[in-house]
Computed example of a mutant assay.
Amino acid sequence: MLWITFLIGLVLTLWAQYRVRSNFKRWSKVEARSGLTGAEVARRILDMNGLSHVPVEPVRGVLSDHYDPTVRAVRLSEPVYSSSSIAAISVAAHECGHALQHKEDYGALVLRHRMVPVLNFTSGLAPWLLMAGIFLRATGLTLVGLIFFSLTVLFHLVTLPVEFNASARAKEIMIRQGFVTPGEETGVNRVLGAAAFTYVAGALVALLELLRFILIFLGQQNDD
């Protein structure tokens, strides 16, 4: 059972990575009819929603796009910032979705932000506590490690509505404002759908890991 959960988690992770990269690569070759770049789409979305003070900044890397809530900035990777492809404007709009969530104090986003300081402490300790508890056969340490790791799993679960909501906002705005035509919606759905799947896969992998540690803990108790 322990090896099965590990293998399932590995397959899910690899499949999610493949989907997001292949879809991004495919739709990066398809230019949006609007001709707008990722940076231009992001700037327009932010401005029309009263967020003209939020900068749109280029950042190095591929698929390194993110919204930084600490300084309220949308950061777009180089292939997204200056490209007018379907993939680029979809990703840019998605990151702006997070900025809109921040402005409106979207519940799941607020909860995720509040969990970060706690996770900065617990996520680093959880693996060490679990390893120590397993190798030393100390059920107390294993239990504390399980509790700490459970918070990481909860963070993954809270992240899901945040990401799905940001994508829904992005698609609605892009269609309403004419950034994409009805015929281009398929590309938007593929790019954002693949990105969302990475978070689903991450949550499932975390749940499987939690199940694996719970089974180890129960085994320790039975041995005692």
Rank of each mutant, 00 (worst) to 15 (best):
E95I: 06
H66K: 07
I86K: 04
E104I: 01
P55D: 13
Y67E: 08
A88L: 12
L63E: 05
M115H: 05
A88N: 09
E57W: 03
L100M: 15
Y67S: 07
V110A: 04
A93R: 04
P117L: 07
G61E: 03
Y106M: 03
L100P: 12
I89A: 12
L109V: 03
A99Y: 06
L51T: 05
V118S: 10
V74D: 13
A108G: 01
L63A: 11
H98R: 07
R72S: 15
L46R: 07
P69Y: 11
S82L: 11
H53N: 11
N49Y: 08
H66N: 15
S85I: 11
S84I: 05
P58N: 10
M48K: 06
C96I: 08
S90P: 01
R75Y: 07
Y81C: 11
S77A: 14
R60W: 02
D47A: 15
S84K: 15
H53W: 05
H53Y: 10
L51P: 07
Y81T: 13
A88P: 07
N49R: 10
A108T: 02
R60D: 14
G61M: 02
H98G: 07
A108L: 02
D65P: 11
H53R: 10
P58F: 11
S83H: 12
S83P: 11
Y81R: 12
P55T: 13
R112Q: 08
R112K: 08
L46P: 10
D105T: 01
G107M: 10
V59E: 09
S83D: 15
K103P: 03
V74I: 13
V59F: 00
D47H: 01
P55W: 09
L100N: 08
V56M: 12
L76G: 15
L76Y: 14
L100E: 13
H66W: 02
L63M: 15
Y67M: 07
V110D: 03
G50R: 02
A88V: 13
R114I: 02
A99H: 09
S82V: 12
R75V: 09
P117R: 03
L63C: 04
D47R: 09
L46N: 09
H102I: 03
A88Y: 08
H66Q: 12
E95H: 04
I86P: 03
A108V: 02
G50W: 03
G50L: 00
G107S: 11
V74K: 14
I86Y: 07
A93T: 07
H94N: 04
K103N: 05
S52W: 00
Y106S: 04
R75S: 13
L46M: 09
E57C: 07
H113Q: 14
G107A: 14
G61R: 00
A93H: 02
L76E: 14
V91R: 00
H66E: 10
H94L: 06
S85P: 06
D68A: 12
E78Y: 02
P117K: 02
H113S: 08
E104W: 05
V56K: 09
R60N: 07
V62N: 00
S52L: 01
L76R: 14
